[in-house]
């Protein structure tokens, strides 16, 4: 079986894969990095979103071999070095942007990509950008509020 090397969250790693192994499997089963989730088989749900060479991609819909030599960022690499939550993660906690937590890794990675492209998105731009990330729990309200807050835009705390 081929071996690929990647920089995952800044650390060089090697992992054996089959040709048919998708990146999400290489991360989850090959490297034991189970933060990246699989919620569907049609590339719709977005639970598996990671960044490959700085771009958000669905890691279930890219062969691991295509990520050979790439810089890969996953949910496991998002917190500050001391383990504390980064601004976006903290905003998700503050604004109740997650419930079961299953979509959350992909949601965070997509939101991070959005803010990199568009540091002050409008609410409509946020909703549009999250088209490929399904959340079944939150109704997206807390997620939208969190991303607004993380981009320094005020939002009413959802709780009454």
């Amino acid at each position: 079986m081929p071996t690929i090397t990647m920089n995952v969250n800044g650390a060089p790693v090697s992992v054996e894969v089959e040709n048919r192994t998708v990146l999400s499997s290489a991360l989850r089963e090959g490297l034991g990095m189970t933060g990246t989730h699989i919620g569907c088989d049609t590339s719709q749900c977005g639970a598996c979103v990671v960044h490959v060479n700085g771009k958000a991609v669905k890691s279930c819909t890219i062969f691991a071999l295509e990520a050979d030599g790439a810089d890969v960022e996953t949910i496991e690499g998002q917190a500050h070095a001391d383990g504390s939550l980064n601004v976006l993660q903290q905003a998700f906690q503050d604004h109740h942007g997650l419930q079961c937590g299953f979509c959350t890794p992909g949601m965070i990675m997509s939101a991070a990509a959005l803010l990199k492209e568009n540091p002050k998105p409008t609410e409509a731009e946020i909703r549009d950008y999250l088209e490929g990330n399904i959340c079944r729990c939150t109704g997206y309200q807390g997620i939208v509020d969190a991303i607004m807050a993380a981009s320094g835009q005020s939002t009413a705390i959802a709780a009454e």
């Binding site: 590339s43 977005g46 979103v49 771009k55 958000a56 991609v57 669905k58 819909t61 890219i62 997509s110 990509a113 959005l114 950008y129 088209e131 490929g132 990330n133």
Partner: peptide, 9 residues
């Protein structure tokens, strides 16, 4: 087309 992650690939 698709969504941002799809458009990146």
């Amino acid at each position: 087309i698709g969504d941002p992650a799809v458009r990146n690939r």
